[in-house]
Computed example of a mutant assay.
Amino acid sequence: MQCSYYDAALCRSCTLIERPYADQLAGKQAHARAALTGHDGVAWLPPHPSAEEQFRNKAKMVVTGSAVDPVIGILGPDGEGVDLRWCGLHEPPVTAALSPLAEFVARANLAPYDLRTRRGELKYLLVTASPDGEVMVRFVLRSTEALARIRKHLPALQEALPRLAVASVNVQPEHSAVLEGPTEIPLTPAQTLRMAVNGLDLHLRPQSFFQTNTAVAAALYREATDWIDELAPSSVVDLYCGVGPFALHAAARDTERRVLGVETSAEAIASATHSAADAGLANARFAVGDATAFAADDDGVPDVVIVNPPRRGIGPDLAAWLERSGVRHVVYSSCSSASLARDLAVMPSLRPVRARVLDMFPQTAHYEVLTLLERG
């Protein structure tokens, strides 16, 4: 992949960009296998590749400069803004949205937030694209001071961006690196972006998490569901379920299968519940809750547990519960093989028997690894 930003040393986020893509994949496979050293008998499937560019379905852009001349991109090492509107990683609908958004910032007189002076309103622009090209736009503001101007000029943005499906304002008043705050203010009647994945419509709400790479995410959900189908469970619990993709796929494959998803984010659970109802999956239900607390309080033992935790992993408490629970199989999707290895050390009775690297993040050292654990 050729990148003018990298060549000019304006952005060095793509740390592996100079390596041929085949070497990147081989390196990630070797890294994952090394992390699981000591676990004999793991069947390693070939790594699942990604498109090398135009694969990111979302952009999280810092806004600097001025309202008249906004800079949409990242902060450079010197603290100055670097315009990344034409980053080659973004899907075309994301790229197509960024210049109209820059014009909208000027039209609505949205002063970018200045970290040094702590003045200004607009902190970030968050843009997400669906597989069919619709976009969600979120304006992260310090306060609601600019809300009336945004609403006034929104029709002009909708005219410039005819595929704009969802728009909202997020209020993040803190002077910190926290991306968003708890308050979300809708700007459009629609407040879910439809993400069509493997024949399922996932209804993504503004504060819900979805994987960055839609095509590889779809492959991840197919792979996990295939493994679950081989086990033919009657009950599945998906901890850290997010907007429910693993749970919904498991429920759709067998409508007699009882599936429960648990997640701390109420927004994500609302998305998952909406998607289940839309798909007519009465066998899938979702609950707001902490994964570890749920496991400790639940009396039943499901046939299969799915975990898809954040980078820190599931942690010792949940790993210890899984170790003593009697659960026969765990499908563990990890974005950090280091935390996966730490968790496996706490549950020695659940041994990895199959694994696959899925390259969710080309041009970087990051990847997803899907592992099937079986009680020995």
Rank of each mutant, 00 (worst) to 15 (best):
M1I: 11
D7Y: 00
A9V: 10
C11F: 04
T15N: 10
E18N: 13
A22D: 15
G27V: 08
A30P: 03
L36I: 11
H48S: 15
S50H: 13
F55T: 00
A59I: 11
M61F: 05
V63H: 06
P77F: 09
P77E: 05
D83F: 01
D83Y: 06
D83S: 07
W86I: 07
E91S: 12
V94W: 05
L98Q: 07
L98T: 09
E103Y: 04
A108I: 08
R119I: 07
G120V: 04
L122A: 10
L122Y: 09
L122Q: 04
L122I: 09
L125E: 05
L126H: 10
T128S: 15
P131W: 02
M136Q: 12
F139Q: 06
V140A: 12
T144M: 08
E145N: 10
P155T: 04
E159L: 14
A165K: 15
A165Q: 14
V169I: 15
P173K: 14
E174Y: 12
G181Q: 11
T188G: 08
P189M: 11
T192V: 12
L193S: 00
R194A: 06
A196F: 02
N198L: 02
L200W: 03
L202T: 00
L202H: 07
L202F: 07
H203L: 06
R205E: 06
F209C: 03
F209E: 03
Q211I: 02
A215N: 09
V216N: 06
A232K: 09
S234R: 14
S234P: 00
D238A: 02
D238L: 03
L239Q: 01
V243N: 02
F246M: 12
A247F: 02
A250T: 04
D254S: 00
V259Y: 01
V262S: 04
V262P: 02
T273S: 14
A276Q: 05
A276L: 04
A276T: 05
A282D: 14
A295D: 00
V304Y: 04
V304E: 01
P309D: 10
G313E: 06
A319G: 14
A320M: 07
L322H: 04
R324T: 12
R324C: 01
R328P: 09
S337F: 02
R342M: 13
D343N: 10
A345W: 07
R351F: 04
V353E: 11
V357L: 13
M360K: 01
P362Q: 14
T371A: 05
L373Q: 02
E374G: 05
E374T: 15
G376R: 10
